[in-house]
């Protein structure tokens, strides 16, 4: 049995310990904002924060997160970074089908929480693990920069 926290709530997980965190979140806890895209850490749709780090939940067994704090798209902290990213995503009208966007936003918030002023190269590096088949990449880049700029002005 694994114990961990999802969006602040203590979870006792009784199914197979090799169950990926993704399926614990989706099928057992019932939070469906975290998406299944590839099952092998190639697309980033399943990105969550584990102790604040962007993590591909589809290849992270629950046995590896014992005692750790998991945040999903539904449980992002009510922080300036979260607000800035959400506002920028809406301002730039980023989403199309929207399926990959929770993962994109988890990667973007993890990046900006650590590095509020990323360079273009750092944005590319942090965001290139998240596939978007609608090709919203240009607006994603613009939105990360917009969020970054708004974080700067508030300091």
């Amino acid at each position: 049995m694994a114990k961990f926290y999802v969006n602040g709530e203590a979870i006792q997980f009784n199914a197979a310990p090799d169950t990926p965190l993704l399926w614990a979140i989706r099928d057992h806890i019932g939070l469906t904002g975290t998406k299944f895209g590839c099952g092998m850490a190639q697309c980033g749709a399943c990105t969550v924060h584990v102790n604040g780090e962007a993590t591909r939940s589809c290849v992270t067994p629950v046995s590896a997160i014992e005692g750790k704090r998991v945040n999903t798209i539904e449980g992002l902290p009510d922080s300036p970074v979260t607000k800035a990213v959400r506002a920028a995503w809406l301002d730039k009208d980023v989403v199309q089908c929207g399926y990959c966007q929770p993962g994109q936003i988890m990667s973007a918030t993890a990046l900006l929480a650590k590095n509020p002023k990323p360079t273009d190269e750092q944005i590319d590096e942090a965001m290139s693990g998240n596939l978007c088949r609608c090709g919203t990449y240009q607006r994603i880049r613009d939105a990360v920069k917009t969020a970054s700029a708004s974080l700067g002005t508030k300091k």
């Binding site: 469906t32 999903t72 798209i73 959400r86 995503w89 980023v94 989403v95 929207g98 966007q101 929770p102």
Partner: peptide
């Protein structure tokens, strides 16, 4: 005109087909 479906998609609230929940649902 900005998309009407964007806020829910940004918040992870949109229910896609893969997210459907039903009683006694088997995968």
């Amino acid at each position: 005109t900005r998309r009407l479906d964007a806020p829910d998609k940004v918040d992870g609230k949109t229910v896609f087909g893969i997210d459907v929940k039903r009683p006694n649902l088997h995968t």
